[in-house]
Design a binder for these strands. Structure first.
Lengths: 217, 217, 217, 217
DNA sequence: AATGAATGAGCATTCATTCAT
DNA sequence: TATGAATGAATGCTCATTCAT
């Protein structure tokens, strides 16, 4: 019933303090990776003592999981906002792409963490946190595609589950391409050094790619 | 002129020994990540002494880079083989997808390493190794799409660079989905627990997705 | 402005603890030399953890430099006390000789360190610490000799700088002869096995040697 | 009966090879000290294999002792040559001073080794090698002084043993001052930056110092 | 509740020495 | 006899975690 990875004490502190701790941890983990991240550093950056960190979290891993949880919740909110609107699938997809551009740029460290986490050799625990978001996402995308198939806008000869999967794959790598050094460089190689100044082109072409894949002609 | 990250001595040992060392390192690095990987463990698994490891490599990082280099070369070879065939774009894409399925399953640790590496906070060095493969891939895909556009099989109203990019994005995440725990779980959520037994379906649907995106109707 | 080679934390601990650490380090370094000295040993001897050693000092070298600094400061104090007295040159020299006898015996490990340090292949850093003491000593001796030349007690036909140098050379080797195994054995060969029980004779004869060299007849 | 620290095999190799090995060892030991000296390096510099080093010497320490032995023998020869001449004490002392200047400059690494060795925390073994030279030196100096006392050139009111000791102390530190970085810097502080260009002055003043100490007026 | 000094297990790396060839 | 690849014990240093204040 307490799906959290922090102790009661972390709930009781001021929002400001909590934010400072989360921000410090996000920066440290995203800059140095889980192993190299230094708990003492995080405490210092957050302006609290190490002792306090361990009053709020059982260990380094739980602090990491809390951050992940926090990031996932933020992403969830962004997605839900888009998904709750009453537009057609095409508009929603375009909105998601634009949201990815602004969110992964504005929350680059958090996005890098998502990449980090997917690598992490502690997947088991991480998975518990992320799975329900993936579940939600998967369900939503699949449902929308199925609905659109019934409505006749999306072609009927495709497997909605797999198409939802491929769609989300495109979204995930786009996210990384705006936030993670490695994928950013890779995108530049594919598209050109100035790709980061051509958001509109990226959206337009990705929409063409997806529409071609999904929709009736 | 010496693009390698190992010492002369590593060249002189038997192929069998070299393989044992590379395998041990691949396992350790892919299982635990760069930081947590233990050089003494690698030596033990490889059946040699730590001292020998340092006779072959200057340090842990160089051992890691050698592994990456090795993995990249292997991937290159797989791709080149496919690309040099004289088939049309559609067949080639299908071949790539099938190659991804078998290669990322057969070389899961190596593939996990690719994910690991893209995360690594030592991107600078890693990038030097991987960038030329990315360059080659990007060039090839883009050229093929442009040629197909001229030939009239691929629609003319798209930006070849970006489409090549999206295509490769799909490939990369497919790779991870067969090799990395996290992405494997995610794929199961999207497609179903038995997805790993449905390779043919995955290929067929991905082909539909891509063909819809690329080709004329 | 902070001419010290230790961290703030080393200032904050109790005098007793600080002394235990310095003593342990002096013993280890003087017994085994810089390279062979074992930081873990020092920690154990001092009754603290290795981690603490590194809370107090950035590294082994800084610990060594701190010890040297400490030894130099102690020597400085001994010399200054003697030099500030209002006696004539002859009395002062005799006092120095006696001070050397008691100080190098009472602080043998520290004195051995001085020898060690003069050898050390890290002279650069060490020199920064010791040079100001050497400067002070050189200046003092030279000035005193010049003054005595003006006063007519020391002969006028000598170069004060060089005579000060030779004087200090005698002092330094006397120091080593009471503290370092090698030089102690050598002294026994020159003077006899019982030389360590004949402090008065050593003083008396060294005074004769120096007075003959310096003073008018 | 075999007062050497090397194996038979070292006797059998060519003079040239032996010299290369000794030179390489002298350089390495004097540059880096006993602990930091690297046997593999020495072998490489000498153009032989490590295996061979261990064919010639039982271990690193014996190699070190052999070097010391070699250095001592060389010094002995220099001294004996001077001492066998038929001059008076004063001339001989001057000759020794000049010999120190040229020898410690010409064989700086060897001289540094002498300093190194006196520090070494393996004094026991070292002492066995050096003691007979010290014995010889001590005996010679003392005898000469006693003879000169009988002849009436050196004052009768001094202890020949102690004066010989002080004399040799001056010689030893002069040696170091020309060969060891630390003592060289110290000499510059006492005498001036250009002291190394003023050999004549150094001799002249040291002669004055010693003559004042020893001789009748 | 908060602090931060203290702990000590853990790991990368070096190098004297051995021994199969 | 000579080689040099192989060994593995040894050690400086880091950092997650604890706990006395």
């Amino acid at each position: 019933m307490k799906p959290d990875y922090f102790k009661e004490a972390f709930n009781k502190i001021s929002d400001e303090k909590r934010k400072k701790i989360l921000d410090a941890a996000i920066m440290e983990f995203s800059e140095r990776g889980f192993e190299s991240a230094n708990v003492n550093n995080i405490a210092q950056k957050a302006g609290i003592s190490v002792g306090s960190v361990y009053k709020y979290f059982n260990n380094k891993e739980d602090l990491f999981l809390t951050i992940i949880h926090f990031g996932v919740e933020m992403l969830k909110r962004v997605l839900q906002e888009i998904m709750q609107s009453n537009e057609d699938l095409e508009s929603r997809i375009e909105k998601i792409i634009r949201a990815i551009q602004s969110h992964s740029r504005g929350n680059a460290p958090l996005t890098r963490l998502y990449n980090e986490m997917a690598t992490e050799n502690r997947s088991g625990l991480v998975w518990k946190i992320v799975s329900d978001m993936e579940n939600a996402t998967a369900g939503l995308y699949t449902t929308f595609i199925k609905d659109a198939q019934k409505a006749g806008t999306v072609r009927a000869d495709i497997n909605a589950n797999l198409f939802a999967f491929y769609l989300d794959n495109l979204f995930i790598l786009l996210q990384f391409s705006y936030a993670c050094e490695y994928y950013k460089e890779r995108m530049k190689i594919f598209v050109g050094e100035d790709v980061l100044d051509k958001d509109e082109l990226v959206v337009e072409q990705l929409m063409k790619f997806i529409k071609g894949a999904l929709f009736m002609k």
